Amino acid sequence: MNLARQHFQKHSAKAAALSAAEFGTMQSQTAYEMQLMQLNQDRHRLRQIQSTEAKIKLKQGLVPTYLPYADGIMEANTGVQDEVFMTVLVWCIDTENYSKALEMAEFALRHNMIMPDRFERKTAVLVTEEIANAFLKVLKTNAAVDISVLQQLDSLVTPSDEEDPDIDPKVLDMPDQVKAKLFVALGKANIKLIQSTEQPSEQDLESAKSAQGYLSRAIELDDKCGGKQDLKTVETLLKKFTPPEPVQTNAGDSSPT
């Protein structure tokens, strides 16, 4: 898609969202209807494919054609329910475009946008579970992982002590088992950051402590989360990393004769 086409698509989406805000629906908005028609055609193409790997490859080619539309919707900042936007959000996760997925997810959660019925999960649940599952799969291999994605997701879906006025806490409600998956992934990813088991750096010690905290919390939320062995591993490392305190003796003590 050339730059002129991208600009037109983004501008049209923004204009459609602003117009739709008056009526509370994207229906009958030309830009939306055109994108929805294209989306339905692309979903039909995907249904003809049985291989998950092949589906992801096709989505990798399709997603960029929808991103100008998604950017226009976010720039309008109206938050009108939009099936195209929410579907592209899911496809961004499927194709590991996590930076765009999290940007879109934050927008969707802020405006309480819901997933189309076929996804059968709340927005926060789907985003958390799908990203956590993807990382847990990669963490079983020797491949590198970008822990910042998990950290950003944690920051998005785990309310801090100070309430975020932009996102209703009810929107972030999810089963404990789903949140536990995210914490197990964060624990495992922190363990992966530990470079040395003999002469640890400050960063190694910090990663081990973070892993311990995440895994302990995951087990509290879901006793069957699969993080118990990892917690034992990191607690063993922490004992090795932390030097024993020197034994104090009284200055006047002497050995018995």
Rank of each mutant, 00 (worst) to 15 (best):
L18C: 07
L18K: 05
A20L: 04
A20S: 09
E22I: 10
F23W: 12
G24Q: 10
G24F: 11
G24H: 10
T25N: 01
T25W: 02
M26Y: 08
M26R: 04
Q27M: 07
Q29V: 03
Q29Y: 00
A31E: 02
Y32F: 02
M34P: 00
M34R: 08
M34H: 04
Q35Y: 02
L36Y: 13
Q38P: 03
L39I: 05
L39Q: 10
N40W: 03
D42W: 12
D42A: 14
D42E: 15
H44V: 09
R45S: 09
L46G: 13
R47I: 10
R47N: 13
Q48F: 14
Q48G: 12
Q48E: 15
I49K: 14
I49Q: 14
Q50H: 14
T52H: 07
E53H: 14
E53M: 14
E53P: 08
E53G: 09
E53R: 11
K55D: 03
K55V: 07
K55R: 03
K55F: 02
I56K: 09
K57M: 05
K57H: 10
L58T: 12
L58E: 12
L62C: 11
P64H: 14
P64S: 14
Y66C: 01
Y66D: 08
L67F: 04
L67I: 08
P68G: 05
Y69I: 07
Y69F: 09
A70L: 15
A70D: 13
D71T: 13
D71S: 06
I73T: 09
I73F: 12
M74R: 06
M74L: 06
E75S: 03
E75G: 03
A76K: 00
A76Y: 07
N77E: 13
T78I: 12
G79K: 10
Q81H: 15
D82H: 12
D82I: 09
D82R: 04
E83F: 02
T87S: 02
V88E: 04
V88R: 00
V88Q: 00
V88L: 01
V90L: 03
V90S: 02
C92Q: 00
D94R: 01
T95S: 08
T95V: 10
E96L: 10
E96W: 03
N97F: 04
Y98T: 03
Y98Q: 12
